[in-house]
Structures are given as C-alpha cells and as structure tokens.
Design a protein around this nucleic acid. Structure first.
Length: 416
DNA sequence: GGTGTTTTAAACATCG
DNA sequence: CCGATGTTTAAAACAC
C-alpha cells in the first residue's frame, strides 16, 4: 500500500553499493571542508589507501581516538560535547588541544565516528536544550558534529530512524501545542536508560579522558524537560479520555518489538542499574539496542576508563559551520530550531545555541571569525569580571581603612 | 564457529 | 501526490 512507486532518489541512494563507494571515498579525504562536502554528493575523490576499507577496525582510530578526545568537552550531564571535528582549516587551533592534533582531526572529521547510532542520537538529544529533538534535528546534529555523514550516503538516516524506533532508550513524544508546521514527533531519551547510555558513552574507548557523571536513574533526576513531562502528561490525558490506561513515564510510547535475536540486551543493561529499574521489562520486548551492553563489554576490555568525578563540567560552546545537504532538504533551517519549543528555554541552552549560530554562518570562514570573536568577547568579559572583582576588593579595602581610621579618630576624640 | 550486537537495507504505513 | 517520518523485518558485518 505504501508508496513503493514513490521511491525517492534518497531511497535509491541508500543502496548498498553506493554506501561503500561513497563512504570509503571520503575517509581519507583530508581537509575536506564542510563547504566542499556540501557541494555535491560524493565526488569521486581518490582513495589512495586501501586500508581505508575498515573504517572502524582500521587502526587509524587508535591514533584518532586521542585526538577525538581533544574535541570533546563535557556537558552538564557528563556527556561529551562534540566540538567541531572539522575545525580543520589549520589556523584555528582549538583552544583545548595542541596544534599537532590538527592533521588527525582532519581524518576524524571525515571518517566514521566511533559511536553507535544509539549514542549519536543520545548525544544529539542530550545536547538539545529541551532534551527532545525531532529526527530532522537529530540528523542535523549528527551531520554537524560528524561531517562524515555529510558525504555518507543517506542510509544512515534510515539507521537513525531505525534506532529511534527500535531502541527503547528513545521515546517518541508528540509535538506540543501550536506549531503546526513541524512534522513528526520529538524524540527524547528515556531517563531510565540514561545511565546506561552514559555508561556506554563512558566506556567508549574514545571517552577515556572523560569524567562522566552518571546521574541517579530516577526520572526526577533525569533531564526531563517540562515540555517532555507535559507531553507525556498530555498523552496520558488523551489515553484516560479514551478509557485507556495511562502510560508510565518510562513507556510513554510503547514500542512493539520483535527482534528475533536480541533478547539479552536488557540483562546486560540491568547489571549497571539493578537498583534503578523499578519496572520490569519483558525481555522479549526489550530491545535496548544497547548502547551499553555490548559496547560496555567491548570497550571495558579495551580501555581504562577514568573514574567518575566531576559534575561541574564546563559546557563548551563553539559555533559551528553548518552542513546543508546538497538537496537542501536535510535541514538546518532555523525555523526548525525555533519550531519545537526551544523558545521555552530562555537561556537558549548552550547546546543548541551552536545550531542557531550555525544558521547565521553558512561558510567556514565567517564561522571562524565568529568563533574568534566569541573568544574575544569571552576574554573581554573575563577581564571585565576580573576588573570588577579587583574594583570591589579595592573598595572594600578602602572602606576598611576608612572605617579603621574613623574608629581611631573616634577613640582619640573620646580620650580628649 | 557460535553468539550477541550493531548497522544497513528495504518495504510499508502514516502524516502533513 | 510527494516527501518526511515511523515501524518492522531481514540480513550482513562485526566483536567477543
């Protein structure tokens, strides 16, 4: 019944053949800039290294891992904040990394990210102010942070959707009030699975430098946005009106799963949170696609993970240039950003600010300028702040001395 | 080689 | 009708 005839060009592009060729051709496309990447679908760039074959198994990642890390700082939730991987133009050295990383960055910018789709989605969602994103924004985020996908065939989007749909960690939430123009739903991270995702992220070999903070697993402690809560609440209201049983927060959107071979995901995940999962989940339905289970096992053996410590990470804001798909449909359109409910967030929470910023800067150069400008502004502010402090300190000491002299004079007068 | 996990592809449905 | 989104199935690829 479906639009079989209406196979879009995009769908056609998702054919396996295209995948391999295009994907690989980009891996060693050193210095491929966003603009270049935007320009058209995979240009036939030369692959002069056949070891490019195994993108992930390739040892390059061993080298890149360290460098990737230089591109991450950590957000309020202990989540790596992916700074521009494609800050690769050379003269703009990331403030957090030595310049010697640059050439490596170029590689990592165009090679496949070491994260599973679940983790990518998780990061995307968590970096949004309201912890809810429409798929389109998830695409955007991933594209933005991992330019690899800009040149990868669009099959990855299918994978993203597939993951969202199949992975219990993600919950679909109907879009709220007003805003009719948005298509599809918002996707949030199920707070109960958040610790698992964080764990998985933590155990990624590329996050070993990180100091992750695993928040308590209770929904309250999660980063549920008011919007999310109200959405779930709304859904439940509707359900109640329909005479249906309200959904628990956790399973606000029930997912029917029949993934034949994946019955054991949940047990692995629960190992990490045995005390946190109040509700039992039918193993047969639990296809967490675990970001944490296998990744955890796999990576635990590979890397030593630093201990958890800091909760007070600095959320690094670095404006990024945007990648607009060649067809222009992949959207970094700002109205999408404002669409949902980001306006609910008066502070314009850091994560998405970068997106908004990206909208204003179509090209790399202005972006760099902006970044520099931002740094200068920050510097100025710091100076001002320091100045103010000094000023206050000065005033205080002045006052102190004035008071003390006044006191001594007072005493002298009394003696007289 | 077996098992489990993740990715990829594809078909189909639904919605705006 | 079209395109984006969401769901589901199947299979390949991969790691352990």
């Amino acid at each position: 019944m479906g639009p079989v005839i209406g196979m879009t060009p995009e769908k056609r592009a998702e054919t396996p053949g295209a995948e391999k060729v295009a994907g690989l051709s980009q891996i060693y496309k050193m210095g491929s800039l966003p603009e270049a990447v935007d320009a058209a679908r995979p240009k036939a760039t030369l692959v002069d290294n056949e070891s490019a074959d195994d993108e992930l198994t390739n040892l390059n990642w061993l080298h890149e891992s360290t460098n990737l890390l230089t591109n991450f700082s950590f957000g309020s939730e202990g989540l790596p904040i992916v700074s521009p991987l494609y800050d690769i133009e050379g003269d703009d050295v990331p403030s957090f990394g030595p310049s010697c990383y640059q050439s490596q960055e170029k590689k990592s910018a165009t090679s496949k990210p070491p994260y599973s789709f679940s983790l990518l989605i998780y990061m995307a969602i968590e970096h949004s102010p309201n912890k809810c994103l429409p798929v389109k924004e998830i695409y955007s985020w991933i594209l933005n942070r991992f330019p690899y996908f800009a040149t990868a065939p669009t099959g990855w989007k299918n994978s993203v959707r597939h993951n969202l749909s199949l992975n219990k960690c993600f919950q679909k939430v109907e879009r709220s009030h007003g805003k009719v123009n948005g298509k599809g739903s918002l996707w949030c991270v199920d707070p109960e699975y958040k610790p698992n995702l964080m764990q998985a992220l933590k155990k990624q070999p590329f996050s070993s430098k990180s100091t992750f903070y695993s928040p308590p697993a209770s929904p309250q402690s999660g980063s549920l946005s008011p919007h999310y809560l109200s959405s779930v609440l709304k859904q439940n209201q509707v359900r109640t009106l329909k005479g249906e049983k309200p959904l628990p927060l956790k399973t606000a959107m029930q997912k029917k799963r029949s993934y034949s071979n994946a019955f054991n995901h949940s047990s692995a995940m629960r190992l990490h949170e045995s005390d946190s999962l109040a509700t039992s989940i039918d193993p047969k339905e639990d296809h967490n696609y675990s970001a944490s289970s296998m990744a955890a096992q796999r990576c635990a053996s590979r890397s030593s993970v630093s201990s958890l410590s800091s909760v007070d990470e600095v959320y690094e804001f670095i404006p990024k240039s945007s990648h607009v798909g060649s067809d222009g449909s992949e959207g970094f359109r700002s109205e999408e950003d404002t669409d949902v409910d980001y306006e609910d967030d008066p502070l314009g929470d850091s994560g998405y600010a970068s997106q908004a910023c990206a909208d204003t800067t179509e090209k790399g150069q202005p972006d760099k300028k902006m970044r520099k400008q931002a740094c200068q502004e920050i510097d100025e502010e710091l100076k001002e702040a320091a100045g103010s402090l000094l000023h206050l300190a000065g005033i205080r000491t002045c006052l102190g001395s004035l008071i003390s002299t006044a006191k001594t004079q007072n005493q002298k007068q009394r003696k007289k």
